[in-house]
Write a protein that binds this DNA or RNA. Structure first.
Length: 415
RNA sequence: GCCGGGAUAGGGUAGGGGCUAUCCUGGGGGACUGUGGAUCCCCUGACCCGGGUUCAAAUCCCGGUCCCGGCCCCA
């Protein structure tokens, strides 16, 4: 027996159906926000990922040399590809609003919520420097989670690199990058070690920084506690815009994320119980597109992997039932296969999901099968068909009746 | 890349140097070719892989693989 590769998943029909339902809801929410779906290659030149992320990231790719001697990799993220696509099309009408839900690969050790192959939903807006785009993207992220039944089960934590830099300068910190790096580690190391690191990076400002990091809450509350600033005004405007969408964020300046390239707000959605990794993350990255040869293009977006999402949806009991499903199963009585097939085909053309017996086994066995595939109705095609009638059995209740073939569509639609 | 815990039919499990490896469930067939979820019968099907210790290994030891979780990293 062959084994599965580490960190990869087999997807059987029951689970696939549930996942398809979730993915569809996510995609249709994005479409509802006026985003347009794109797709892209699953492999790119490895070099593409060095541009933005450097060698550390390249170590964690599934890469290989192709037959032409090129260094190729399965994509570990979508942003460089999207930037490349954007750079080679100067006729795009702005704002560009794109989403995609591709598979991605990262060569890492699997653990909770992390695999080597996964799907990641991505949505981005290009060409808008104003906070309106940040609001639209944040609102989409939250609406997606809400529409999946997670309303109130997660917290959208937002920070802002510009505000943080303003504050650090105000506190007299000179080594800003290093200080960010220390802050990023805050929750992963013991408190005393964190304090030590922070003092070595930020010196006397450490105490003030701690105060800022510990203030978490609504935008208004946090800004009033840390003091007025031009950037604070913009964040207040962000929440004001989000009020129009009916969404609330939490300002939490301890969120750092992707030190390398975010240039404005950054955000992460976490499950409210704090049990899992971030469900999604994103922010503004105005300086990235030009790295890939495009014009300087304002950009804001987020990515959301399917693994953590599934964990939290299951814990909250909102993950769809994992079971196969068809609308009807056509049971065939010996001698009536042709009529049965015609009935099945007519229903299939109406858009119903219809299975039909292929075995010629006993009616009892056929119904047992119908039961196993969760058919809503069994349609028994036998003698009655000579008079244009069939027996329809509701597999849930067991009720059955003899009806004209023309009535089938209506009956199946009832459910 | 590193660390901890696991691995017995398709799924869930019992056993823990020696007899035909336990039970539940599933799958196929039959009782029953015009009625499923019930019952009974038959069939199917497993000790992760490789090496070592031993008269004898599913069991003990070593290595690998995969699974679960943690570290690093998290784009």
């Amino acid at each position: 027996m062959f084994r599965k590769l580490k960190g990869f998943r087999d997807m059987y029909p029951e689970k696939m159906r549930a996942r398809r339902e979730v993915f569809e809801r996510i995609n249709s929410t994005a479409r509802g926000f006026g985003f347009h779906e794109i797709d892209a290659p699953s492999v790119e030149l490895l070099e593409l990922f060095r541009v933005k992320s450097g060698d550390e990231i390249v170590k964690q790719t599934f890469s290989f040399v192709d037959k032409g001697g090129r260094e190729i990799t399965l994509i570990p993220e979508l942003t460089p590809t999207v930037a490349r696509m954007l750079a080679s099309r100067k006729d795009l009408v702005k704002p560009v609003k794109w989403f995609s839900f591709p598979k991605m690969w990262r060569y890492e050790e699997p653990q909770s919520g992390r695999l080597r192959e996964f799907y990641q939903f991505n949505a981005d807006i290009f060409g808008i420097a104003g906070i309106e785009a940040d609001a639209e993207v944040l609102a989409l992220a939250m609406e997606i989670l809400d529409s999946l039944g997670l309303e109130g089960k997660y917290v959208m934590r937002v920070s802002d690199r510009i505000l943080m830099e303003e504050l650090l300068k105000k506190f007299g910190v000179s080594r800003v990058e290093e200080t960010f790096r220390v802050i990023d580690k805050k929750d992963k190391i013991p408190e005393d070690v964190f304090m030590e690191n922070l003092q070595s990076a930020a010196g006397d400002a450490a105490e003030k920084i701690i105060d800022v990091l510990n203030v978490k809450g609504s935008v208004g509350d946090v800004i009033s506690k840390i003091g007025e600033s031009s950037r604070g005004e913009i964040l207040i405007k962000l929440q004001d815009l989000l009020d129009g969408y009916g969404k609330k964020i939490t300002l939490d300046l301890s969120i750092v994320r992707g030190l390398a390239y975010y240039s404005g707000i950054v955000f992460e959605a976490h499950d409210a119980k704090g049990e899992f990794r971030a469900i999604l993350g994103g922010g503004r990255y105005d300086n990235v597109v030009q790295l890939f040869g495009g014009e300087h293009t304002p950009a804001v977006g987020f990515g959301m992997g399917d693994a953590v999402l599934e964990l939290i949806m299951k814990r909250e009991g909102v993950w769809p039932e994992e079971r196969m499903e068809v609308d009807a199963f056509v049971a065939v009585v010996p001698g009536f296969r042709k009529e049965a097939t015609q009935i099945a085909m007519n229903l299939r053309k109406e858009g119903f999901r219809v299975d039909i017996d292929l075995t010629g086994r006993s009616l009892g066995k056929q119904l047992k099968y119908a039961n196993r595939i969760n058919a809503k109705y069994a349609i028994i095609v036998g003698e009655e068909v000579r008079n244009g009638k069939v027996v329809v059995k509701d597999m849930e209740t067991g009720e059955q009746r003899t009806v004209g073939i023309g009535k089938l569509k209506e009956i199946i639609n009832e459910n």
